[in-house]
């Protein structure tokens, strides 16, 4: 077995264990830290798949920004208001996700997929060229989506002035 394959299995195993931890951890902070681990491991998988630029983005965006965002959200919501972690829906969730996994397993293994060819590295130059030529319009649309999301997040999270409709409903 070549080295990259061994590395993949190890990294994938760690990712899965961390993800499992995210969904079952008793503590919210643990869950958040395990999620960061899982996301960084995903970045490693990108690296193994020769997508180095994507790995960089993954670690920057998820490992950095997203984790910090999540931790801030946790800090802004005091611990005493946090509900019990799991509720009675967990059994249904387990059954559903189990069924979905079985289906995906069947789909992945039953069909004959094209044999994996020799992975080829894609240079950052090519990626940049593709993004700004073939994918120029979706790229611009994505930037607009980000802008709208930014403004929307601002508007929604802004503190409500007393007497506004939303504030009245909240106090009611």
């Amino acid at each position: 077995m070549e080295l990259s394959a061994v590395a993949f299995y190890v990294v994938a195993g760690v990712t899965l264990v961390a993800a499992l931890g995210v969904v079952v951890a008793r503590s919210v902070v643990y869950a958040a830290l395990l999620l960061i681990l899982s996301l960084v491991m995903t970045g490693l998988i990108y690296l193994l798949l020769l997508a180095d630029f994507l790995a960089l983005i993954q670690i920057l965006v998820y490992g950095g920004t997203v984790s910090i965002l999540l931790l801030f959200a946790l800090m802004l919501t005091p611990p005493e208001t946090r509900p019990e972690l799991n509720h009675r829906g967990w059994a249904l969730g387990a059954v559903t996700s189990g069924a979905l996994f079985a289906l995906l397993l069947v789909a992945s293994l039953a069909d004959k997929w094209p044999a994996a060819g020799a992975a080829r590295h894609i240079s950052l130059v090519d990626l940049g060229r593709a993004l700004f030529s073939t994918w120029a319009v979706p790229f611009e649309v994505a930037s607009v989506v980000l802008l709208v999301a930014l403004l929307g997040a601002l508007t929604i999270a802004r503190s409500t002035s007393p007497g506004s409709k939303i504030a009245r409903r909240a106090s009611a």
């Binding site: 829906g89 249904l92 969730g93 559903t96 069924a99 979905l100 289906l103």
Partner: peptide, 14 residues
């Protein structure tokens, strides 16, 4: 309940 909706959603996707 979100999990009710998610259940229907996942079953439909499947």
């Amino acid at each position: 309940y979100i999990y009710h909706y998610a259940f229907g959603f996942i079953i439909g996707i499947m």
